[in-house]
Simulated scan of single mutants.
Amino acid sequence: MVDVICFLCKEENLADPFKALEASISQILLEAPPLSVRHLEPNSSLLQALDYILDGTQNLVIPIESYATRNSRKKFLGKPAPFSSTLHNGREYCWITQEDVVRFILNSIGVFSPIPTFTIESLNMIDHDIMTVHYDEPASSALALISRSLVEQTSVAVIDENNRLIGEISPSTLAFCDETVAAAITTLSAGDLLAYIDCCGPSEELVQLVRTRLEGKNLEAMLDLLEEYSLSSSSSSSASSSCSSDDESAPIKYGGSGRYSPARRSEAIVCYPWSSLVAVMIQALAHRVSCVWVAEADHTLVGIVTFEGMLKVFRSIAGGIK
Rank of each mutant, 00 (worst) to 15 (best):
D3C: 09
D3F: 12
I5Y: 08
C6L: 14
N13V: 03
N13Q: 06
L14P: 04
A15W: 00
K19R: 09
A23T: 01
S26H: 12
L29H: 11
S36W: 08
L40P: 03
E41C: 05
P42R: 10
D51R: 09
Y52A: 11
I53T: 01
I53M: 06
T57S: 05
N59D: 13
I62H: 04
P63Q: 12
S66F: 03
A68C: 01
S72E: 14
F76P: 00
P80E: 14
S84T: 14
S85W: 13
H88Y: 12
C94Q: 14
V101N: 02
V101Q: 00
I115E: 07
I115D: 01
T119L: 02
S122C: 02
M125T: 10
I126S: 01
D127N: 15
D129T: 08
I130V: 15
M131A: 05
H134T: 08
E137N: 10
E137A: 15
P138L: 07
S140W: 01
S140L: 12
S141A: 14
A142D: 04
L145G: 03
S147K: 11
R148N: 13
S149L: 05
L150F: 03
V151K: 13
V151F: 02
Q153R: 13
Q153A: 03
S155E: 06
V158E: 05
I159E: 10
I159S: 06
N162A: 11
R164V: 04
P171R: 00
A175L: 11
C177N: 10
C177A: 13
D178Q: 02
T187C: 15
L188M: 07
L188D: 07
S189I: 06
D192Q: 15
L194K: 07
L194Q: 08
A195D: 14
C199M: 06
G201V: 07
P202G: 10
S203E: 11
E205M: 12
L206T: 10
V207W: 08
T212N: 13
K217V: 00
Y229A: 05
S230Q: 13
L231C: 09
S232C: 11
S234I: 01
S237L: 10
A239T: 08
S241H: 05
S242N: 11
S249A: 12
S249W: 01
K253F: 02
G255Y: 10
G258F: 02
R259P: 02
R259I: 02
A263N: 02
A263Q: 07
R265P: 05
R265T: 15
E267A: 14
E267L: 12
C271S: 15
W274M: 06
V278H: 04
M281A: 09
I282A: 12
Q283G: 04
V289M: 03
S290L: 06
A295V: 15
A297K: 12
D298R: 11
T300Y: 04
T300Q: 12
E308Y: 03
G309S: 10
G309T: 02
K312H: 07
V313K: 00
G319R: 09
I321R: 05
